[in-house]
């Protein structure tokens, strides 16, 4: 009887089921669309930077000083050199400090004090980079009474610490306990075990984290504005203002001169290629290391 006359209930079930299936199908499309929309800017930025930046790149771009307003030609060689100097300086401060904090958090990370340090790492990572710049301005620039490469390097170095500390901690935590125990069981002191077994064994992965954070600070602009400032000349000492690629891109981008805007695109291309290439290479290296470790 039921088979010949479908009840009102089963009809209702049928209708709601159709609706639910429709909603599900629509939501699946929404999810895929959301992902596609989210990646549009990536491709758009890359496309425009390559298209507008490529014509600006020539020998002069990499070897010459900026040309005065109105003159054609010139390059960003001093800014490229300046960024390298600033990044090296930042690395000298940021890498050892960040790695040591990472080791501390992974190996002695259970105390209350360690929780405070971990909290500080998180907070430091979330402070806007321009605020770090202001801090260094108040700490170094005001007493020295001038902008300097030293101040810029310090600001970038501080920015590196939290990312390096975090990745180092996460990497070291991946090492199984039995390896630590094996080391200690052989009568090796703990500090030797940590340095020569744990840290040495994950040197490659730590280096990956370090390289990624270097790539990140190389593109930082805001903290350099009032620490390193900028310069139209070659490097003249660490106590002098120093040019950097990101600041130069900023200055040229907001300038009204087409020649300069074109060079800003060129600089952006150099910066983006550097960031993308380091990201891709380090990730591939990391994946290969992980793959061989698992199989």
């Amino acid at each position: 009887m039921r088979r010949t006359q479908p009840s009102a209930l089963s009809q209702l079930v049928e209708i709601t089921y159709k609706r639910r299936r429709l909603v599900t199908r629509a939501m699946m499309i929404v999810l895929i669309a959301a992902f596609l929309v989210a990646t549009v800017p990536l491709f758009s930025v890359f496309f425009h930077v390559v298209r507008q930046g490529l014509p600006a790149l020539n020998m002069d771009f990499f070897t010459h000083l900026p040309a005065p307003v109105g003159e054609a030609g010139g390059g960003l060689a001093n800014a490229l050199l300046g960024t390298i100097i600033l990044v090296v300086l930042a690395s000298v401060i940021g890498i050892p400090w960040g790695v040591v904090i990472g080791i501390f958090l992974s190996e002695y990370g259970k105390s209350r004090f360690a929780a405070l340090v971990r909290f500080s790492v998180d907070m430091l990572a979330s402070i806007p980079s321009i605020v770090i710049g202001l801090f260094v301005y108040a700490l170094v620039v005001i007493p020295m009474k001038r902008f300097s490469g030293l101040a810029g390097g310090l600001a970038l170095g501080i920015l590196m610490v939290p990312t390096i500390a975090r990745t180092t901690e996460e990497i070291l935590k991946l090492i199984p306990v039995h390896i630590r125990e094996a080391g200690l069981g052989l009568g090796v002191p703990r500090w030797k075990m940590i340095l020569f077994i744990i840290v040495r064994g994950s040197m490659g992965a730590i280096a990956t984290g370090v390289i990624l954070s270097v790539a990140r600070v190389a593109g930082e602009t805001a903290p350099l504005l009032f620490t390193a400032l900028s310069s139209r000349f070659w490097f003249g000492g660490l106590d002098q203002p120093i040019a950097s690629l990101p600041v130069q891109i900023f200055n040229y981008a907001i300038s009204p001169f087409e020649e300069w805007q074109s060079q800003a695109w060129g600089g952006a291309l150099v910066l983006i290629l550097f960031v993308f290439v380091t990201n891709i290479i380090t990730r591939l290296a990391l994946r290969r290391a992980h793959g061989s470790g698992q199989s």
């Binding site: 790539a215 190389a218 891109i249 981008a253 695109w265 952006a268």
Partner: peptide
């Protein structure tokens, strides 16, 4: 998307 420097987003 996170790797693109802020100043490049500005330029774009």
């Amino acid at each position: 998307l996170a790797a693109i420097p802020s100043v490049v987003y500005g330029l774009w």
